[in-house]
């Protein structure tokens, strides 16, 4: 069984995000990048499926992203994925989801697959579109926001539990299928040291757009980001600071009376 897991490089959730001067993106300094959290569930689910099906099953990581994504791909390989396809091309800087999906679709078709796992969304831009566009382009069913996955005994169908408003939905799907993963699906493993050592020797197939057969830009972007704007500073709350609680209370009362005019 050929299992694919899609992976995106995103800023760490704890990183302090600042928008660059031109407003075209975020400042890179001081930012640590990690595997998109939901993609970790995808890699883990792929590995679990591989372990369950055994035999000739393989997990291939597919990533479209900058050169620096390599170390994160290695992390996924250290977790136990067998190999990876890394589409890395200057032309892919700040693309829209449609373009990325078109690129991934090419790479995935060339690779072949029985099942694709991916995150339900990337935690940076929160678009959550890739899985649906991909399903369309590959002409396969999609099941989104999966919290449980079970392959049928004949390996031709799968039962997926997905989170919906107010409850869970159980979906049966045929294979091949793309499943987008939600928190709770599994607990991604921590790579063992032998895993890390082995990952250094595993193959990452680097592809440019030309390698994938794109003569020029891979399809039209369906959207363009004009400008990034920082969130408006909310008036927020004022911390009343004072050494003694008594003074703090006095100051609070003054603020409520004179500034907020509520008492």
């Amino acid at each position: 069984m050929k299992i694919l897991a899609l992976l995106k490089r995103v800023p760490d959730t704890e990183a302090k995000i600042l928008i660059n001067q031109e407003g075209t993106g975020i400042k890179d300094e001081g930012i640590k990048y990690v595997i998109n959290t939901y993609d970790e569930y995808a890699v883990e689910e792929g590995l679990r499926l591989k372990e369950k099906t055994g035999g000739t099953s393989t997990v291939t990581v597919v990533c479209a992203g900058p050169e620096e994504a390599t170390e994160l791909i290695r992390t996924a390989l250290a977790m136990g994925a067998d190999d990876a396809v890394h589409v890395c091309d200057k032309a892919l800087e700040r693309p829209d989801p449609f373009v990325i999906a078109a690129v991934l679709a090419k790479a995935i078709k060339a690779e072949g697959f029985d099942i694709i796992f991916c995150g339900k969304q990337a935690i940076d831009d929160d678009m959550g579109q890739i899985q649906s566009i991909l399903a369309e382009m590959l002409d396969i069913p999609q099941v989104n926001v999966a919290t449980a996955f079970e392959l049928a005994a004949d390996a031709k169908r799968a039962t997926v539990r997905r989170r919906v408003e107010g409850g869970d939905e159980k979906v049966e799907t045929s294979l091949p299928v793309i499943v987008s993963c939600e928190k709770g699906l599994n607990d991604p493993r921590y790579a063992s040291l032998p895993g890390i050592m082995k990952a250094k020797k595993k193959e990452i197939r680097k592809k440019t757009l030309a390698d994938l057969g794109f003569a020029q830009a891979p399809g039209d972007a369906r959207s363009t980001i004009l400008r990034w704007l920082p969130p408006q500073k909310s008036s927020g709350c004022t911390m009343v600071k004072a050494e003694e609680t008594r003074d703090a209370v006095k100051e609070l009362v003054r603020l409520l009376r004179e500034e907020a005019k509520v008492v």
Binding site: D12, T13, E14, A15, K16, G30, I31, K32
Partner: peptide
């Protein structure tokens, strides 16, 4: 060890 960004 805490989940706090290193830049801070």
């Amino acid at each position: 060890p805490w989940a706090i960004g290193y830049s801070s």
